[in-house]
Simulated assay, not measured.
Amino acid sequence: MDSDERIQAASKFLLQSPPGEINDVLNDVRNIISDDESLQTGILPALREYNLAQFITADVPGHQHQCIVSEAARVQAQGEEEDEERRDRFWDPRSRTSFRFDHLALEASEPEPIEPETEAEPFRLALENASLTYLAAHFHDGVTSVFPTQGNAERFVVQVVANKYNPSNFWSGRWRSEYIVNLAERTLEGKILVNVHYYEQGNVQLSTTHTVSLELPQTISAESAPASASKILALIETEESKYQTSLNAAYQEMSEKTFKGLRRALPMTRAKLDWEKVLGYKLGQELSASKGGFAAA
């Protein structure tokens, strides 16, 4: 396998990294490539794709909060062709700050002020405030970002991500949700993605996607931004609560039925078999049979 093929293989491994474990995967593939310079250059597209899809969070330079790094957060090029450096500039509407994001070090730098679109900002801000309230009530250490859509003052993207890493107990998990709020078409379209990895004496992953498609009530409008934003987040809360309940029910059913079916049945004695003594069990059985034969004679 040549260097390019190894880079391609490493990129595929990275794209399949469980939540919070990409550095572990990266360290493993470094041993395969054995060339850090070509590795960093070759896997950058895969790292960029992974980080944007997974809603990786970044500390906003000069501020005390985090924002989501995603495709919706990318700073759009204005007229000229986008170069590599500008391609990795993102923005946080909450602080009106743009920054350059290092996909390998996962760090934000080179902050610049950026002004949002005047027409879209009032409703975007209302959605952001409602999202922060929802986040504080339902997510531990979660992050939310709300973005306007360039050229469309009535279309917004609401994103939420929450991570829980517990390597000492061999599990990690990530919740992602994204919603497109379209006031003109009166629709709420979205998806919820859950990834959980459990790897104590094994390797089990759960990956689910749940889609949401709702019609917005007639009472929602840009003119009543705070009240309308709260109603939209109430719809999101209802959908996410229902999905969480369905996941809990599925886990309960698997625990009571599926997992029990996978377990090895106990022997007739209802005691666990000590496999280190299995030869002794067999020998004892033969001796008992022999004694029975002698008695019959």
Rank of each mutant, 00 (worst) to 15 (best):
Q201C: 03
V161S: 10
I192P: 00
E240C: 02
S224T: 13
T245M: 14
L214Y: 05
E189N: 12
L233R: 02
W175P: 00
T187C: 05
F259E: 09
I236V: 15
S228P: 07
A153Y: 09
F156Q: 00
Q205Y: 08
E239Y: 03
Q252R: 13
V160W: 00
L188D: 02
V161H: 08
V160S: 00
S255A: 14
Y198H: 14
Q150Y: 04
F156P: 01
Y199K: 03
M254V: 08
G190C: 05
W171Q: 05
F259N: 14
T208C: 00
Y179H: 09
Q150H: 06
G202A: 07
L233D: 03
E237Q: 10
V157A: 06
Y198L: 11
A153R: 10
K231M: 11
A153L: 09
N166Q: 14
H197E: 01
E215T: 15
W171T: 11
N203W: 02
P217Q: 10
G151L: 06
I232N: 03
S221R: 10
I192D: 01
I236H: 08
L193H: 07
Q201G: 02
Y251K: 06
N166R: 15
N182R: 15
I220H: 04
E215W: 13
G190S: 10
K164V: 12
S213W: 06
S177G: 06
T149D: 01
G202H: 06
I180T: 13
T258Q: 10
W171H: 10
V161W: 04
T219N: 04
R176C: 12
S172A: 08
Y165H: 15
Q159V: 09
Y165S: 13
E185D: 15
V204Q: 04
V158T: 01
Q201T: 05
A225H: 05
S221W: 05
E215Y: 13
S177D: 05
T209S: 04
T258P: 11
L216G: 11
T208P: 00
N182I: 12
V204R: 00
N169P: 01
N195I: 04
E253S: 13
H210A: 09
A225G: 12
A234S: 11
N163D: 15
K242C: 11
R176H: 08
T187W: 03
N169Y: 14
E189Y: 06
V158K: 00
T238A: 07
S224H: 12
S246D: 10
Y198W: 09
Q244A: 12
E240V: 02
K260N: 06
N182Y: 15
A250I: 01
K260Y: 02
A229H: 04
V196P: 01
P167G: 10
K260L: 08
E253A: 14
